[in-house]
Amino acid sequence: MSTDSPLKPLDKPINALSDNFGPVVKTRDLTKRYGRETVVSNLSLEVQAGEIFGFLGPNGAGKTTTLLMLLGLSEPSSGEAWVLGLNPVKAPLAVKSQVGYLPENMGFYQDLTAEENLKFVCELNNLKNAPLAETLSLVGLLENRNRLVSTYSRGMRQRLGLAEVLIKKPKLIFLDEPTLGLDPDGIATMLELIERLPREMGLTIILSSHLLHLVNKVANRVAILNKGRLLALGSVTDLAHQANLEPDLEKIYHYFFKADQQEGAA
């Protein structure tokens, strides 16, 4: 952590993964159709505990739809998914109480302070005596806790969004384009936080993004999607080996993307 970072270190992990239920996320032929359009097609993958799993693909690749299905917010057209050993369709509340989700455009109640926004999330989760100060401190917002969110910068809002995700002590978090619209300092702070979470809290992270160089910095393994189909899955090193390239995610991504387009054209 850099010396001028607004983030504070944690004394102890908020929530270490202790349960042993195999892969944290597992999907088998997961498919989602809207009418005739297939947005996620036969997706099968596994995410292990403590991983930072990069979910890559252009807009419309099916990343957000997959996350929504894993959260139980959207019902799969076919196939199955298990999150922390639970089926999100059958037990959506159990899944949502253990999974944190930072959507692409996380919104806040502008007329409330950061702490009041956080308290509302605690109430929705039925959390009493939640560590508000500790969580705000973790994301570097403790000193600004009583300021209206309307006065916050984009970076501060993203960090507040992360605080809202962490306050319920999740075991798994989905971050959908968490660095979108942030300035370089904001991106650096966010990435630093993302890197620390599995290490210090035992969290598993699924990071959806189309900014390859950022994912390259933090992800242990990645899945590359295009038009709802899984093009590649594995660690950057493994994928580089498969593609016979140097371990550069940008080059790997373009390799698999091009191969898919050529296959489609053929």
Partner: peptide, 13 residues
């Protein structure tokens, strides 16, 4: 204001 998806991702029906 982007708060709908946030609310629905909490453990409520």
């Amino acid at each position: 204001q982007g708060t709908l998806s946030k609310i629905l991702s909490q453990p409520i029906y």
